Structures are given as structure tokens and as C-alpha cells.
Simulated scan of single mutants.
Amino acid sequence: MNSYSRHGKLVRNRIPQIIRDGGTEPVFYTAGRGEYRSRLRDKLGEEVAEFLAADDDVAPEELADVLEVVRALAADLGVGEDQLEKIRAAKTAERGDFSDRIVWTGNR
């Protein structure tokens, strides 16, 4: 029994069919709205941890997984990709981005 057998794990839409194609019958259910949001937050943590542990060869794939979860979370909050981009751009205009690699160490 794996660690998800009792509690479940949020997976991508095609995973049940991929499991069937592999010759096994998956057991799954559709989460309600509140559970879905909670599981998306958990999934974000899982995907970020996988990204942080990945070497440079695998990191782009893991980062894409993080982005997929971020998009799902935004959609669940009623925020479309265009609106999310506008929010990101406004924050960048106000506070900048990370391209200058500035590390703050405190104040004097």
C-alpha cells in the first residue's frame, strides 16, 4: 500500500486512463470544491519540493508542473491567465523583478 492509498492524491485528468492503459483499474473520485482547493495547495507544495530537488536537466519539467498547479489555483479563484499576468506585471512595475539577482541582507 503506497502513502496515497488511504488519503488520495490529486492527479492530472488523464492519469486514470493512463493507469487503465497500463492494465490496472484505478480507484478515484472527484473532489468537491473545498477539497479541490485544499488539494491544489498541497499539490503546489509537492511540485515545488520536486522542483527544488531536481537537477538542472529535470528542473524545467518540474517547473512546468508548478506552473500547471498555479494556473489551476488561479482558475479556482476565478482569476484567468490574462488577469494573473496583469497582476504579475503590475507588481513588477511597482517592485521590479528578480533579474538583477539582488540579495538583501538587512538595513543599517
Rank of each mutant, 00 (worst) to 15 (best):
Ile15Asn: 04
Leu44Phe: 10
Leu44Gln: 06
Arg37Ser: 02
Arg41Val: 12
Thr30Lys: 06
Arg108Gln: 14
Asp55Phe: 05
Ile18Gln: 10
Val66Arg: 03
Leu84Ala: 15
Tyr4Gln: 13
Gly23Trp: 01
Arg12Tyr: 06
Glu35Ser: 01
Glu68Tyr: 04
Arg101Thr: 11
Met1Val: 14
Leu10Cys: 04
Asp65Gly: 03
Asp65Ile: 09
Thr24Tyr: 15
Ile15Trp: 08
Pro16Ser: 09
Gly106His: 09
Asp56Asn: 09
Ala89Gly: 04
Arg101Tyr: 15
Val79Lys: 00
Ser5Lys: 08
Gly78Asn: 02
Gly22Ile: 04
Tyr4Ser: 11
Asp57Gln: 11
Val103Ala: 12
Pro60Tyr: 07
Asp76Cys: 13
Arg37Trp: 03
Glu85Met: 11
Phe98Gly: 08
Ile15Gln: 07
Lys86Phe: 07
Ala49Thr: 11
Asp42Leu: 05
Asp82Gly: 07
Asn2Pro: 06
Val79Asp: 01
Glu25Asn: 07
Ala89Cys: 07
Ser3Gly: 11
Ser38Asn: 12
Leu73Phe: 00
Arg6Ile: 10
Arg20Ala: 06
Ser99Pro: 04
Asn107Ser: 13
Ala59Asp: 01
Phe28Gln: 02
Leu67Val: 13
Glu85Pro: 00
Arg41Thr: 11
Gly32Gln: 01
Gly34Ala: 08
Ile19Asp: 01
Ile87Gln: 05
Val58Ala: 13
Glu94Val: 06
Ala64Met: 06
Ile19Cys: 02
Gly32Tyr: 00
Asp82Lys: 05
Glu81Met: 13
Glu47Trp: 03
Ala54Leu: 04
Arg41Asp: 11
Lys91Gly: 07
Asp42Phe: 02
Val70Ala: 06
Thr24Ile: 15
Asp76Lys: 08
Lys9Ser: 02
Ala64Asn: 09
Glu46Asp: 14
Gln17Lys: 12
Ala72Asn: 01
Glu68Val: 07
Arg71Ser: 12
Gly23Ile: 00
Asp100Phe: 09
Val27His: 10
Ala59Glu: 02
Val27Ser: 13
Asp76His: 14
Ala64Arg: 08
Ala54Asp: 04
Ala72Trp: 00
Leu73Met: 06
Glu50Lys: 02
Leu44Tyr: 05
Gln83Ser: 14
Gly23Met: 02
Ser99Cys: 08
Arg39Pro: 00
Phe51Gly: 01
